[in-house]
């Protein structure tokens, strides 16, 4: 650990007139799992969208390994090794499961590598293999979530951003997803994780940030956040 792979400095993002991020500063070190927690509408997804270039901030900078990517196009950021599994899954409804996964590997040119990854994803989610030629849009909600994560894995990014990966999944699958995240991390993938399930997120993360209405109000190691009174009350449901 030590090298800052991702760094946001005083980032302000807007949707039209809506001031969604009001000066976010955060960093992620190489090899870390960092989680962002916060209420609905706090700006977690917006932060990820700003990092991946879907949204360009009006103020502040986003740096990837020291390189300024504040105004870089999203597809170029992908090529720099940033993966983003978006909120709401973003499955291509009229592409088959196979084609969706292939799109996840769009940046990869070596067919053998694509095949390897494909098999790896099938190992993790055997359900996807059974549904290969089905349209993405016809999968169940949970299956779509598996597909979205599987597609994110196809790319094998250096830093993977996951936006509520546990959403809509049965508890066993939530466990599985968190296991996969940890496994990936051990293989050297840096993780930035947004979760409603703060308990799970804090149990696998190294550090965390707490967002409230576009501001970071608290940051600490995951251990300490779990013991923080405000976090316990608001996000862990402990009175």
């Amino acid at each position: 650990m030590g090298k800052r792979i991702l760094e946001l400095d005083n980032v302000h993002s807007y949707y039209g007139h809506i001031h969604a991020l009001k000066g976010i500063s955060l960093y992620v070190e190489e090899g870390e799992i960092v989680t962002m927690i916060g209420a609905n509408g706090a700006g977690k997804s917006t932060t990820l969208r700003t990092i991946s270039g879907l949204l360009h901030p009006r103020e502040g900078t986003v740096k990837l390994e020291g390189e300024d990517i504040t105004h870089t196009d999203p597809h170029l950021i992908v090529y720099k090794g940033v993966g983003h599994v978006p909120e709401g899954r973003g499955i291509f409804p009229k592409l088959t499961v196979r084609e969706n996964l292939e799109m996840g590997a769009f940046t990869i040119t070596d067919p053998n590598k694509i095949q390897q990854r494909l098999e790896w994803v099938f190992e993790l989610f055997p359900r996807l293999k059974e549904r290969l030629d089905q349209y993405g849009g016809t999968l169940s909600g949970g299956e779509q979530q598996m597909l979205a994560i599987g597609r994110g894995l196809m790319q094998h990014p250096r830093i993977l951003m996951l936006d509520e990966p546990s959403m809509g999944l049965a508890p066993v699958l939530v466990e599985l997803i968190f296991d996969i995240i940890q496994k990936l991390n051990k293989e050297g993938v840096t993780i930035l994780l947004v979760e409603q399930n703060a308990h799970m997120a804090l149990s696998i993360a190294h550090r965390g940030y707490v967002l409230q209405t576009g501001n970071i109000v608290l940051t600490d190691s995951a251990e300490k956040l779990k013991k923080n009174e405000m976090v316990q009350k608001t996000y862990l449901g402990i009175e």
Binding site: P74, H75, V78, G90, L95, M103, G104
Partner: peptide, 24 residues
Amino acid sequence: TKVGKAIRAVAQDRATASLMGIDV
């Protein structure tokens, strides 16, 4: 073809397509 799939992906969801590394 790969580029054809990219065309269809862009048609269906431009933002997500760009997250795949596709230059929209």
